[in-house]
Nucleic acid binder design. Structure first.
Lengths: 160, 160
DNA sequence: ACCGTCGTTGACGTTGACGTAAGCGATGAG
DNA sequence: CTCATCGCTTACGTCAACGTCAACGACGGT
C-alpha cells in the first residue's frame, strides 16, 4: 500500500505552526518542556505531526479560556490515555465536571463584563456627542488590526 | 436626622470582605497599593464602605474574565470620574471597544471548551458504565464545595 | 569563503499578582 | 499580666509563562 492516506501524514516545522497560530518557537519548546507536546525528531529538528498540531490547538484554546498549562496537560494526557486506568478516568470525570462549573461561572462573568463595557461605551458616546462630536468620530476606527490581546499579545523573539 | 438611611452606611473590616469574597487581606492591600481601592481609615485601620465593596466585586469579576489589574483600574477610574478629560474618554472608548471584541472572542472559546468538556464527560461516562458502573456512581459527588478555581484557589497568609 | 536563515540548547531576565516573613501597636479573654 | 487575635507596614520571595541572549550546527545562495 504505497501512497494512500496522504493527508494525515503531513508534518510541520516549528516555524510553520508558529506562523499559523501566531505564537513563538520559544513557546512551543516551552510547552514541550512542560510535557504538553512531544514532536518527533529528525536529527535534532522537531517535526510536528497532525496530531501535534491538534494538541497545540487545544493548548491555545485552553489558554484563552484561562486554563493553566498544568491543567491543559492533565486534559491532554487524559485524552490520549483513554485506555486502562478506569479509576483515573473516574477522578478525571470529577475534575472535568468541576471545570465545567467554573467555566460556566466564567461565562456569566464574561457576559456581565461585556454588558458593563457596552453600556459604558454607550454612556461615553452620549457624553461625547454632546461635548466633542469630533473626538467621537475619531474613536470610530479600530486603530489597529484586531489585537489578540491578553494572552499572546506580544510576539517577538527577534524583533530587534 | 438620626437613624435613617441605615443600610448604605454599613462598613466592613478587611477580614469581613476577605471572608465574603474568599481572598486575603494581602490582596486587598495590594489592590489599594495599585490604586484600585481606597478605603477610609480610622487611625490606621482600613474601613471599607459599601462602595468599596462594590468596587471589590468588580475587581474580582474583572480578574475572573482575565483583565489585568491595570485594566480594571482604568475602568474603575473612568466610572467614578466621568467629568472632564473628554479626549481621555475618547481613547478609553477605543480601548473599551477593543476589549469587547476580545471578550466576545473569549466567550466563543469558552463555549467551545465547555462543549468539549461536556462531550468528554459523556464519553467517559459511557465507557465507565460499561466497565465500572461502581466508579461512575462514586464520581457523582462534587467531592468538595464548589472550588472557585483558577484565580484565588489558594488562600492563606498564615496557614502555618 | 562568507552570509543569512532556520534550527538547536542552555541559562538568565521579566512581569504580574500576590505570598511570606519580620516587627510592631491595639484590644479582648483568661 | 500574658497571650492570642486582628491589624498595620516594609521588604523580600515566588510562580507561571514566556522573552532575551549567547553560542552553535546545517543549509542554500552568491
Amino acid at each position: 500500500m504505497p501512497h494512500e492516506l496522504r493527508r494525515p501524514e503531513r508534518t510541520f516545522t516549528i516555524r510553520q505552526l508558529c506562523l499559523e497560530f501566531k505564537c513563538t518557537p520559544r513557546a512551543l519548546r516551552f510547552y514541550e518542556d512542560k510535557g504538553l507536546l512531544s514532536p518527533a525528531r529528525q536529527g535534532l529538528n522537531r517535526v510536528y505531526s497532525y496530531k501535534d498540531r491538534a494538541r497545540l490547538q487545544l493548548i491555545l484554546r485552553g489558554k484563552r479560556v484561562n486554563l493553566s498549562l498544568a491543567e491543559i496537560r492533565e486534559i491532554l494526557d487524559l485524552y490520549d490515555k483513554r485506555d486502562g486506568g478506569a479509576s483515573q478516568n473516574a477522578t478525571a470525570l470529577r475534575k472535568f465536571r468541576e471545570r465545567i462549573v467554573t467555566l460556566e461561572q466564567q461565562r456569566e462573568d464574561l457576559d456581565q463584563a461585556i454588558n458593563l463595557l457596552k453600556t459604558s461605551c454607550q454612556a461615553i458616546e452620549d457624553q461625547l456627542s454632546h461635548t466633542r462630536p469630533d473626538l467621537l468620530a475619531e474613536a470610530e476606527q479600530p486603530a489597529a488590526p484586531p489585537t489578540t490581546h491578553r494572552v499572546g499579545q506580544r510576539h517577538p523573539e527577534h524583533v530587534r
